[in-house]
Design a protein around this nucleic acid. Structure first.
Length: 772
RNA sequence: UGGCGGGUAGUUCAAUUGGCAGAACGCCGGACUUUGGAUCCGUAGGUUGGAGGUUCGAGUCCUCCCCCGCCAGCCA
């Protein structure tokens, strides 16, 4: 992958499907407007980055625009510091919202006005129940709620009380404004949700102008509608709020007032990442408890933390593309992020030499004081970028302590006594002597192989290539090696599962001299060691500090970590929950209430020769049974009618009630008969059936109009077969080479070419002859 | 014990709307040899949650079952 591939081919996800569909049907007059709606109560993290890339990404892709909108409806937790950081982070990620930074608080006046109107319509009331009482009155997941004693107040009374709330004389918690919807709703969010609460608090934008603040469920849909948002994209946990979102839009008619089509809410799965947490609350706790050094600690999954760690926005955007968008709750491998980071840095980070844990090497064959200038390119040939610098070979150099072993294991491609290795960009050296102090290796004495710079020495086996710096010609640096913040892939109790070794500080690393004046924030690859960034906060030119961004991918055999068992959760959790009431029970109950249904259930099995399961499905309600009776009365075989009603009808109905459709028993009977008699194919019959359910009509007429009569004439079909095979010669070759699964593909192509009229059995038979 | 949403390779996602179950990451292996990197090549990995059914043909349609997530804040 190159840098340019980022803006790649057509991604496919359900959100983009919806948008493309809406664009086709002109639902919003061709507009695409999205919004990214953070609450300014914390720093943005990688999960928000996914949402940002989605919202800004689709807006850009479909020629629309995306607003940055602050959901600032709770003054207690929000602040300017957070709002500022969010603006900065979104821009840093590479998305521009121009002058479209919006605040829910900008709309407080209109929201208030709409609330007064809602009260006037009798759709909201002021409730003086306490918070505990409201909770108790709301019922439970299985029991309906009870009305508050204040629910029946008149509109005038409510309006006066609401204005009193707004006036500011009432204390916090005194009362709230609630929507009057449905306390018996199976959706808890619809049980008279709160719209406004009293909060005498200073707001970072509106100051002390408001003693009351709107709740999310009131503020969000109205804000979307005011801004003309078309696709309001949020995370899965808001699925239950969608019904209320629609209720607010419809009840206030706010979209019409602003001359826009109404927005629709769509939910996607939030990002979860191995070994990290996304909860703002828990991240805040880490900051407050000092487990990390602030929101921009390089170990934090915040945008600020990743920026300081050295991740570039391109990498984060590539990651968002890589993980995609779906509705399944999932957890992404941290390796995917690391892959994107490496992939990005590979193209952008110059290669330089640096030694983390130096070991002194004296090249005894090299004269004291002699410096040899060596030219080293910044990028390898496959990256192909220009640039080079000079490094100096000298008598005393430093190599990585890990690159020498007295007693090397098999396959060790580094230095050992008697072995020869190449110094990157320099000559080869051979280890002659090991100097130890108290059992520890403190120095190596080597000689260099003459004429070995830039060419392989004859007759000498080179074990490998190692990095190095000159002992005198190098700069000292502090290096911070970061590891994952948590020990567990999915911490249950994050505060107690912190990785104690999430950062290791090395104070005496040595870098090649060209790095002396490196810019804070610039990123480099220390060859064979990893990618590093000069810390934008702590690094100074006289005291450089490097953060390890990510290690290089380690392809040494056997170095891979064992796969994390992620299926634990699935395996260990068994359901203690009894099966919920199924449709089978609903049908049984209907028969208890309706003797006619009970009678049909008891007799139809024998009467029509149907299996009991089929009879159950046909006798759960009257319209189904009526239709069945009428269709069989029209002369169609009962078993076939039952099959059509059971297998095809529910799908075609798609939520509608049977008696709301123009489908008639005689029509169904005639269709089934036509299909049974072989007048039309099954595929054509389905097409006719769909038409009859949607718009009604006589099957014979529809068949005639659309020319759907079955074709079983071999000559006609053979012509189509030949045409299809000729058009897909490559597939024919594959088929003959053994990919027999393609047979279905050919059948499909032929049937499609005939508009569903060709008899499949004949198609199969002819194809079989042609292909073998 | 309600409602809503979901279940395709180890992971994250595709599958032209009923017609070839694929890609990327990861893994394993190979090639290369001035990064144990990059790059290139290859292998393995699937009862599409399960069982029935409809169909010439089902990941996709029907029925039943199983599993996972979310919802009872005056948070968003």
């Amino acid at each position: 992958m190159t840098e340019d591939d980022r803006t790649e081919q057509g991604r496919s996800d359900f959100i983009r499907d919806v948008i493309e569909d809406d664009l086709r049907t002109g639902k919003h007059g061709g507009r695409v407007v999205t919004r990214f709606p953070p609450e300014p109560n914390g720093y943005l993290h990688i999960g928000h980055a996914k949402s940002i890339c989605l919202n800004f990404g689709v807006a850009e892709q479909y020629g629309g625009h995306c607003n940055l909108r602050f959901d600032d409806t709770n003054p207690l937790t929000e602040g300017v510091e957070y709002a500022d950081s969010i603006v900065y982070d979104v821009n840093w990620l590479g998305f521009s919202f121009g002058d479209r930074a919006r605040y829910a608080s900008d709309y407080f006046d209109e929201m208030y006005q709409l609330a007064e109107e809602l009260i006037g319509d009798g759709k909201a009331y002021v409730d003086h129940l306490s918070d505990e009482e409201i909770k108790a009155y709301r019922g439970s997941l299985t029991e309906p709620g009870r009305p508050s004693p204040f629910r029946m107040r008149t509109a005038e009374e409510n309006l006066a009380l609401f204005r009193e709330m707004r006036g500011g004389a009432l204390p916090d918690g005194c009362c709230v404004l609630r929507a009057k919807i449905d306390l018996g709703s199976p959706n808890m969010k619809m049980r008279d949700p709160l719209l406004y609460r009293i909060r005498h608090a200073h707001h970072h934008r509106t100051g002390d102008a408001w003693p009351i603040y709107p709740m999310y469920d009131w503020a969000h849909p109205i804000s979307d509608a005011i801004e003309g948002v078309t696709h309001s994209i949020c995370t899965l946990e808001f699925e239950n709020n969608r019904e209320l979102y629609d209720w607010v839009i419809d009840s206030t008619r706010v979209s019409e007032r602003h001359g826009f089509s109404r927005p629709h809410q769509y939910e996607f799965a939030p990002l979860n990442l191995d070994y990290t947490i996304m909860s703002k609350r828990l991240l805040l706790a880490l900051v407050e408890e000092g487990s990390v050094n602030g929101w921009d600690d390089p170990r934090m999954p915040t945008i600020a933390g990743m920026r300081r760690r050295g991740f570039r926005p391109e990498a984060i955007r590539a990651f968002a593309d890589l993980v995609g968008v779906a509705k399944v709750n999932s957890t992404v491998d941290i390796e995917k992020l690391e892959f994107c980071v490496r992939n990005d840095l590979n193209w952008t980070a110059p290669r330089v030499l640096g030694v983390l844990r130096p070991l002194k090497v004296t090249v005894t064959s090299w004269p004291e004081g002699k410096l040899e200038a060596l030219t080293a390119p910044y990028f390898p040939p496959d990256v192909g970028k220009p640039g080079e610098r000079t490094i100096f070979f000298q008598r005393e150099i430093l190599i990585e302590r890990d690159d020498f072993l007295i007693d090397p294991p098999a396959g060790y491609q580094r230095l050992a006594p008697g072995r020869t290795v190449r110094l990157r960009y320099g000559p080869c050296i051979t280890c002659d002597d090991v100097v130890t102090e108290e059992g520890e290796v403190v120095e190596l004495r080597c000689h260099h192989v003459p004429e070995s710079v830039g060419k392989n020495p004859a007759g000498v086996k080179v074990s490998g290539v190692i990095h190095w710096v000159g002992a005198a010609e190098s700069v000292s640096a502090e290096v911070r090696l970061y590891d994952r913040l948590f020990l567990a892939a999915r911490p249950d109790d994050p505060a107690n599962e912190l990785n104690p070794d999430s950062v290791e500080v090395i104070t005496n690393a040595r870098l090649e001299p060209s790095l002396a004046g490196a810019e804070p924030g610039s990123s480099w690859q220390l060859e064979r060691v990893g990618y590093f960034v000069f810390d934008p906060v702590d690094s100074r030119s006289d005291a450089p500090v490097l953060n390890r961004i990510v290690t290089l991918r380690d392809s040494r055999p056997g170095r891979a970590e064992p796969a994390v068992p992620t299926s634990e959760v699935k395996a260990s959790r068994t359901s203690t929950r009894p099966a919920k009431r199924s449709r089978i029970e609903y049908r049984a109950e209907a028969r208890v209430r309706d003797p006619l249904l009970a009678d049909r259930f008891a007799t139809w099995s024998a009467l029509y020769g149907l299996p009991e399961g089929d009879v159950d499905l046909l006798t759960g309600d009257r319209p189904s049974g009526d239709l069945f009776e009428a269709a069989t009365a029209a002369g169609a075989p009962s078993a076939a009618v039952a099959r059509w009603m059971i297998n095809e009808l529910p799908h075609e109905l798609n939520d509608r009630l049977l008696d709301e459709t123009p489908l008639t028993g005689s029509g169904l009977g005639a269709l089934v008969l036509a299909a049974e008699m072989g007048e039309i194919t099954g595929a054509a019959a389905k097409e006719v059936f769909a038409e009859m359910v949607q718009r009604g009509g006589d099957p014979a007429q529809i068949i005639a109009e659309r020319g759907l009569a079955q074709v079983s004439d071999e000559a006609t079909i053979a012509a189509i077969v030949d045409h299809v095979l000729a058009a897909h010669q490559d597939k024919v070759d594959q088929y003959r080479a053994g990919k027999t699964g393609l047979f279905g593909f050919f059948v499909g192509q032929v049937v499609r070419s005939s508009q569903g009229r060709a008899k499949p059995e004949v198609v199969r038979q002819l194809l079989g002859v042609r292909l073998d």
